[in-house]
Amino acid sequence: MQPTLVILAAGMASRYGSMKQTESFGPGGETIMEYSIYDAIRAGFKKVVFIIRKDFADAFKAIIEPKLAGKIQTDYVFQEKDAYLGGRTVPADRVKPWGTGHAILCCKEQVKEPFAVINADDFYGADAFVKAYDFLVNKCQKDVCAVVAYELANTLSENGSVSRGVLAVTDSNEMQGVTERTKIYRENGAIVFEEDNGNKEALPENTRVSMNFFCFSPAFIDLCGELFPKFLDENMQNPKSEFLMPKVADEYIKGGYGKLEVITTNAKWFGVTYKEDAPTVKASIDALVSAGTYPASLWK
């Protein structure tokens, strides 16, 4: 069955301060996710599903649809705060939707095939899409999914600390678990993560981390639906609580639902966690265009 690319684009971009999903970074006015879509098409993907909020759907489609017409099939999923609540009422102080796991659950009606899922505002590199497509076509099953892992040194920001899902990997190259480290940065040449109590611990440069690039069977969407009610029962009154995709992936393994293979790429990730990252991202894309990796205008 032909796999689909799912792009998480419903975030409010609170740290970045604008709608970074549709901001231009390429020399032809391209957004970051357009480079992902371009790489995905080259790898073999024929369909992309955007998870967005309904309130910016028109603006989003006006930017993206003319560029992709005739190049890849598109579909849209709206992640709204009241979706899949099972009769529960959204608390008045709830501002954001319920996180990336909830976003995947919102795909239940549209995505019935194996799929890769990525963030809209992250640049992943062509190698990751080639490997993901190969896995989805040849290996993905209900009980065999995958995570695309990056080397930590290739994922840092020069403008502040980052949060990363640090992967525990078995000798057979399977994900054993993921630990969210919320404050990782470079200090005196070394990479460290800082705990809530201020203690710091060094992390190796080649620590494998998740950048929210996963390869799932549609059964994973069902698992999100299975786990979401319990999350709501425990976290409904916490306005900042999030039902996160990596947490569901962790339960997928530890609950005996299946295994997650680790697909390692040495591609350099970059993204716009902070507004100050934008010039670096633009320069990185310009360098790739100059090197011939991408055309100066992706869609012409």
Rank of each mutant, 00 (worst) to 15 (best):
P114V: 06
P295T: 07
L167Q: 07
K183F: 10
V49E: 05
A249H: 06
K259F: 14
D75L: 04
V166K: 02
Y38L: 00
G292T: 05
E187L: 11
L68H: 04
E226A: 07
N266E: 15
S163Q: 15
A83G: 07
G255M: 09
N188L: 06
V117Q: 03
P66T: 04
L156C: 04
I72V: 12
P239G: 13
V130F: 11
M33H: 13
S14K: 15
D196Y: 06
V272A: 13
I37W: 00
V111T: 03
T265R: 07
E109C: 01
Q73L: 06
G160V: 02
Q110G: 03
Q21D: 15
D277C: 02
T264G: 07
Y84T: 04
Y294I: 01
G87V: 09
A202P: 11
I51R: 03
W269Y: 13
V209I: 14
L152P: 02
F228E: 04
F135V: 03
A62T: 10
F220I: 01
S161I: 05
I37E: 00
Q79N: 15
I52L: 15
P3V: 01
E242L: 10
D233E: 13
L68Q: 04
F115E: 01
C145P: 00
G258Y: 02
A296Y: 12
N119Q: 15
Q110L: 13
N212H: 07
S241Q: 09
C215Q: 09
F129P: 04
I64S: 00
F135P: 07
C145T: 03
F193T: 09
A116K: 05
A43K: 03
A57H: 13
T182H: 12
Y124R: 05
M236W: 08
E205G: 02
Y84C: 09
V148Q: 03
N138M: 04
A40R: 00
D58Y: 08
F213S: 03
A69T: 13
V6Y: 00
G256N: 11
